[in-house]
């Protein structure tokens, strides 16, 4: 390129570089830093006062119900990640190896659509479908089963999480499986490696990075979602995102909600960092 790297002030380059920096510092980093600062503020007579006190932290972390919610949310998100990874894998496997490239492209095309399509309405739709008197129980009644209570259970929550995460997990898994070198799989078959064994000793290790990244996205989405546990899971006890909403919307306790949010971010960063370390670890 003909650009002199030592040129100090390059208005052309800065025109393209600055918008995102200015915007993100003002409206992305700014809010997040302010939220962390806010955890030390005090609320008196429904008004927030800037201060530097540990009260909110002591109040929130010192209570059993916070930790109940914390471990519930952690457990649900982990379960969701496991379910999504396991449910998605056969589909991703089929889309990568058992169909033509054209079908694969269309499958991904159709999976991208729901990912960007109102999750809220889709969850409400499940609420109706899974209801005690809803279509599923009505159909089960024809064959003499049920009615089963599916709403306000962990099962309901999981259905919601899967609605949110499955399309993305299948897409990411398919992309990483499809990029595996086919000759390695053929070599395994030629050497007499059985089908199942090939999957677990050849394909999964080769696609490890992509599979873990898919799982991390699933964990982040489930951990931060309030719609599934609230509308399908009954929110008793509340998960952390529901706790943020309750604390913010009723009682103006923004600083305490911020404590919950910061705890969530710390957890997510820890999980994501650990997972990425595993994903990119060199084989010894």
């Amino acid at each position: 390129m003909t650009i002199d790297p030592k040129r100090r002030f390059d208005p052309y380059a800065l025109t393209w570089r600055m918008p995102i920096i200015v915007w993100q510092v003002l409206f992305f980093i700014g809010p997040l830093v302010f939220m962390i600062a806010m955890t030390f503020f005090l609320v008196k007579n429904y008004r927030m006062h800037e201060a530097f006190e540990m009260k909110n932290w002591i109040k929130m972390l010192g209570r059993g119900f916070f930790w109940d919610s914390y471990f519930l949310t952690l457990g649900l998100a982990t379960l969701s990640t496991l379910c999504a990874t396991i449910i998605a894998f056969p589909a991703a496997y089929a889309l990568s190896f058992k169909v033509s490239a054209n079908i694969r492209r269309w499958a991904i095309f159709f999976l991208i659509i729901p990912f960007f399509t109102s999750y809220l309405v889709r969850t409400f739709s499940w609420y109706v479908i899974l209801a005690e008197s809803g279509p599923i129980n009505a159909m089960l009644a024809y064959i003499g089963l049920g009615p089963y209570t599916m709403l306000n259970t962990k099962f309901g929550t999981m259905v919601g999480y899967m609605t949110l995460t499955l399309p993305l997990v299948v897409i990411l898994q398919t992309v990483s499986l499809a990029s595996i070198d086919r000759s390695l799989i053929e070599a395994a078959h030629n050497l007499g490696c059985g089908r199942v064994r090939t999957v677990f000793t050849v394909i999964v290790p080769l696609a490890k990075t992509g599979l873990i990244i898919a799982a991390v996205f699933c964990f982040i989405l489930s951990f931060g979602d309030f719609v599934a546990p609230y509308y399908l899971g009954g929110s008793k006890p509340p998960t952390l995102p529901i706790m943020i909403i309750d604390t913010t919307k009723s009682g103006q306790q923004w600083p305490r909600a911020a404590v919950v949010a910061v705890m969530m971010m710390v957890t997510l960063f820890t999980v994501a960092f650990a997972a990425i370390m595993v994903a990119y670890r060199k084989k010894t």
Partner: peptide, 26 residues
């Protein structure tokens, strides 16, 4: 620079919501 540009979708929306609410009020 790229991290700054691409990070927002990895932060749960509910956290962004609270942070934005407080920041805009401020």
């Amino acid at each position: 620079f790229l991290a700054l540009a691409l990070l927002p979708p990895t932060i749960p929306l509910i956290i962004m919501a609270l942070a934005m609410l407080a920041w805009f009020a401020r």
